[in-house]
Design a protein around this nucleic acid. Structure first.
Lengths: 157, 157
DNA sequence: GAAGATTGACAAATCAATCTTG
DNA sequence: CAAGATTGATTTGTCAATCTTC
């Protein structure tokens, strides 16, 4: 358990990177969510689900795929979809080939909602995230994100 | 309201940057939280509060400062502190100069907790976040985070 | 019994409303 | 009545347990 080794503390620069990274994303997501909510009564979670479904062929996806595409736990997606079903943004349908499977399917109301919301949402993201950064910074960020995500996937738990 | 302008959609590269940024941070924070939780029964939020208090003179901070230092809403911090008071990690104390004010003060138990937890936590952050990135990337990330945060602060709401 | 998915109980975050002192 | 802070109601997320089909 290596209890008696001196830990390698983070340098101030490393701390700034870590805390800044976390806080910048939390701040951004929070702000974007509030804009979304007040413009459209959609949460960021609602929006994410609708985007993925709208892009999918037939407006439908298997639960597990939908969860994976958003990077969420299955149970989180299931709760989310349940709430969206109540608001008629989505419906559930069984899977003919595999009786265990289930589809989430976007409704016409869901499509209307996202069509009406997307333009302002995109503007918000552009204004708060894209605009203040240079193209090079965006590129680095993309690389970094990909690397971090791959690294996480390689390490189970 | 500019309803009939065609919105400037995000390019694929811009989408990747935005989604990647959000997902990388969510993935990282989630993983780090779970490590923390299983190692120590502290949540990431608990840890953040304890770190700030432990660093502060007298192990104490005014509620508003504590909230600001974590970048949280006051009410979130208040709920968080209440839960931590129940677990004896923190106590509340009144402010002599200003009767409205309140301090959060770390307890000896709180200090023990964080001292015991910090080494493994730091290792986790290093392994998952610092190690897979180059120093240049960390630097860019820090700059980007600072810029984004400043940009957010300038725009109220 | 394992895969696919949902449920229920609980913990945490958000928002508006409230309380108290200046 | 404004500032500092907390509370309560509601929504959202997490974890373990369950249900059903393969």
């Amino acid at each position: 358990m290596r209890m008696n080794e001196t830990p390698r503390w983070l340098t101030p620069a490393e701390q700034n990177a870590w805390r800044g990274f976390v806080r910048a994303q939390e701040g951004l997501s929070g702000r974007v969510s509030r804009h979304l909510q007040s413009d459209s009564s959609l949460s960021a979670a609602d929006y994410a689900v609708l985007v993925h479904l709208a892009d999918a062929p037939g407006g439908r996806m298997r639960s597990a795929d939908l969860a994976a595409s958003a990077g969420w736990e299955k149970s989180r997606m299931s709760h989310q979809v349940s709430r969206m079903v109540e608001r008629r943004l989505v419906v559930r349908e069984g899977c003919p080939e595999d009786g265990r499977g289930a589809f989430g399917v976007i409704t016409p109301e869901g499509r209307e909602m996202i069509a009406a919301t997307a333009p302002r949402h995109v503007e918000t993201v552009r204004r708060l995230f894209i605009d203040p950064l240079t193209p090079e910074e965006l590129e680095v960020l993309t690389r970094v994100a990909r690397r971090v995500l791959e690294h996480l996937e390689q390490r189970p738990m």
